[in-house]
């Protein structure tokens, strides 16, 4: 494992923990898209089915279990525990527009036409766009709490670091996975506009608010 890969995983974990703590401590999930979080739970579930078929390392297994557990905890907090604070009126992105095309694409473009491989591919495609309901919600309300901005930034940094990891692996191991790379590029590009706002506003101590 190279440093980019490790920092990417760490950044991903930090993002998830930031959001869990924010919701838990404030007893509120206002401003958080339950749809994006539900999509992430689907992403982790469909991707990590190999927990039952392959053992890679304790690190690999441990992280997978933590990601899955955290994603379900998040969904439970938003749709059950703190349901009263969930801002469903602003969480109106149509998820079928993300799930259906990525599912079809996973059937058409994959490494191997087997159930586990198709589900893995679906999870890669779905992850690349799963944040859209959250970004849509931010653009609809025109603002995001600072802590939500930190979450989005850490989540964006994660896939960006993976891009560096893939360059490294191609260079030094001759390894590449085109499906992951293309989807990872799309995912990173979706965060670019947000990165700009984060650096120009949030880091200067301002709340992220979009011009009307």
């Amino acid at each position: 494992m190279n440093i980019f890969r490790f920092l990417g995983d760490l950044s991903h974990l930090i993002a998830i923990v930031i959001l869990l703590l924010k919701i838990w401590k404030s007893r509120s999930c206002a401003g958080i898209s339950g749809k994006s979080q539900a999509l992430f739970a689907v992403v982790f579930t469909t991707r990590y089915l190999d927990l039952f078929t392959n053992f890679i390392s304790f690190y690999n297994t441990g992280m997978k279990v933590v990601y899955i557990a955290c994603s379900y905890a998040m969904v439970w907090m938003i749709y059950s525990k703190f349901k009263a604070t969930y801002d469903g009126n602003h969480d109106t992105f149509r998820v079928e527009f993300l799930v259906a095309p990525t599912a079809i694409l996973a059937f058409l473009v994959n490494h191997d036409f087997t159930p586990l491989e198709i589900l893995w591919t679906f999870s890669i495609y779905l992850e690349s766009v799963a944040i859209l309901p959250q970004l849509f919600m931010v653009s609809k309300t025109g603002e995001a709490e600072t802590i939500t901005s930190h979450y989005l930034f850490a989540l964006g940094v994660y896939r960006t670091l993976y891009l560096f990891n893939w360059i490294w692996r191609y260079q030094f191991e001759g390894f590449f996975d085109l499906i992951a790379i293309v989807a990872g590029l799309v995912q990173t590009i979706l965060y670019c506009d947000f990165f700009y706002l984060y650096i120009t506003k949030v880091l200067k101590g301002k709340k992220l608010s979009l011009p009307a």
Binding site: N54, I56, D112, Y162
Partner: peptide
């Protein structure tokens, strides 16, 4: 090469 079986990444 284009690996597909063992997924060591997360």
């Amino acid at each position: 090469g284009d690996e597909s079986t063992l997924k060591d990444e997360l």
